[in-house]
Write a protein that binds this DNA or RNA. Structure first.
Length: 473
RNA sequence: GUCCCCAUCGUCUAGCCCGGCCUAGGACACCGCCCUUUCACGGCGAUAACGCGGGUUCGAAUCCCGCUGGGGACGCCA
């Protein structure tokens, strides 16, 4: 049974790299018919915040990719502790009574790697037990094999064979002096207990994985598969971080910029993965069908943003592609939300609304364009740009448009073909160029000189409004 | 410092593991042209990359070694 998990820690907003990890997990689970687990890694009580939790759920829900099971690590601490002591009982862990270091006297990494305190490793079981019984605080550390020429191995689905000498792995902590599990302990215990079959996560965990392999081996015969993803980095070359790069790394930046979720998913998937067929613009379903670990790269990918523009240009392009081609029925509700956000509630029935959206979206690239540029298609109070006013001031324009309005009013036929025929007839009769009325009608009906083909504008605006606006020109 | 990972156009990438089909392909962005009685879309074209040095080989972007560069881990954070 294939089971994957996404395990964010609620210590900040959902960031772009985490979102991508979530998506890859989801893709793999869905493609293989597996189960997607969402596990909140909230063992660091000091740093957890409710706001962060909210932000993660908001972001995840916005992506629109559902998970099947949900857990919080804080509910499972007893299990983590139990597993930690099981390791201890096997003789694979020891108590370290060294007092906690203050931040002042932090160890200098330049002094060489810290592997553990030999004196603490050497403590006899009886002595260790005596000091613990006396209430002396300790951290429980994994007893990594020393001087045995022992290698820790695992195979990564992306990075292939990985090996590290046990002598290069430090005695990492399992339980802190307050008794709570560390990340490594909690994560592995849960992965085991939740029967996670594939651990898909960022490459920043690649070197931690050797420790995890040690924990898994100590506790079980089952070893999950690993797949590490290349990191997302900023244009300055550093790993994306909220502290350094600000809110651009948050998924809400893209949501608020008017992205449709499937475009954002499409964009993120292309950072570090590709379908090997030169295809880039893809629906989520198409990506899912194509998704394999062979398609994942090993080198880090740069998210292309700048101070002036927080949006990667390729993401913007993908968004416009999705916006223009996705089923209107899917897009319409998003447009409604965007417009309500701008204080516009579109009147009219759903069919007319969708028809209008369908016509005008061909020139738009973000959801915000609908309220910002499309006001005239939904409301009667709209501004006329100076350029549009000029088009209307052309000789014969107003007269022609009024005449056109009168002719259209006498006929129920409001098809583009009919409108075009009528418009050309009016132009002929008045001895003016059709272009005057074509450009003039766009200006009169939308207050703008840019937009869909003039005849499509008539149908997008709707018969009643067209007749009113032409009469009032 | 130690260990791990990575290295193709400005950016995302194909090709690399299994050398020749690579005068290195695609996409975004930028520039030009075409289409279009608007603006976009679209079409066509241009500019643009195998980090460096050694090997191996008839032949290397592809294999090996070294260097350089970048990233990550090294916490009683996750």
């Amino acid at each position: 049974m294939l089971r994957v998990r996404f395990a964010p820690s609620p210590t900040g907003y959902l960031h772009i790299g985490s979102a991508r990890t979530f998506i890859f997990n989801w893709l793999y689970a869905r493609r293989e018919g597996g189960t997607m687990v969402l596990r909140i890694d909230d063992t660091d009580v000091e740093r957890n915040t409710e706001a962060s939790m909210q932000s993660i759920f908001d972001g995840l829900r916005w992506l629109g990719l559902a998970w099947d099971e949900q857990y919080a690590q804080s509910d499972r601490i007893a299990l983590h502790q139990q597993m930690a002591w099981k390791i201890f009982e096997k003789g694979l862990a020891y108590r370290d009574f060294t007092p906690m270091q203050s931040t002042e006297e932090e160890r200098d990494p330049a002094a060489g790697p810290w592997l553990g305190d030999p004196a603490m490793r050497a403590l006899s079981p009886a002595e260790s037990q005596r000091r613990a019984d006396a209430g002396e605080p300790f951290v429980l550390r994994y007893r990594v094999p020393r001087n045995q020429n022992r290698w820790v191995n695992f195979k990564d689905l992306v990075y292939r064979k990985q090996a590290k000498k046990a002598d290069d792995i430090e005695d990492f902590a399992l339980l802190r002096s307050n008794g709570l599990p560390t990340y490594h302990m909690a994560s592995c215990a849960d992965d085991l207990d939740l029967r996670i079959s594939h651990i898909i996560r960022g490459q920043d965990h690649l070197s931690n994985t050797f420790k995890h392999v040690l924990i898994f081996e100590a506790l079980s015969d089952a070893m999950p598969e690993f797949a590490h993803l290349p990191l997302l980095i900023a244009p300055d070359g550093a790993k994306l971080s909220k502290r350094k790069h600000g809110p651009v790394v948050s998924v809400t930046t893209y949501r608020d910029a008017g992205f449709v979720p499937q475009a954002y998913v499409n964009f993120l998937c292309l950072l570090g993965w590709n379908p090997k067929n030169n295809q880039e613009f893809m629906t989520v379903e198409a990506i899912m069908e194509k998704f394999t670990f062979e398609g994942i790269n090993r080198s880090n990918a740069t998210v292309n943003f700048s101070d002036e523009d927080p949006i990667d240009p390729k993401a913007a392009w993908l968004n416009s592609q999705h916006l223009r081609t996705m089923p209107v029925a899917l897009l319409a509700p998003m447009v409604r939300v965007a417009m309500e956000g701008a204080g516009i509630s579109a009147q009219g029935d759903e069919a007319q609304f969708q028809q209008t959206v369908d016509i005008i979206r061909s020139r738009y690239s973000v959801l915000g364009d609908f309220p910002a540029k499309g006001r005239a298609y939904f409301l009667d109070d709209f501004d006329t740009t100076p350029e549009a006013a000029e088009k209307l001031n052309v000789d014969g324009a107003r007269e022609g448009l009024r005449a056109l309005g009168e002719r259209l009013a006498q006929d129920e036929d409001f098809s583009e073909a009919h409108i075009e025929a009528e418009l050309r007839a009016v132009a002929d009769a008045m001895g003016i160029k059709a272009g005057v009325l074509i450009n003039g009608s766009r200006a009169a009906l939308t207050g703008q000189t840019v937009g869909p083909s003039a005849f499509a504008v008539f149908t997008a605006v709707g018969r009643d409004r067209v007749l009113r606006r032409l009469a009032a020109v």
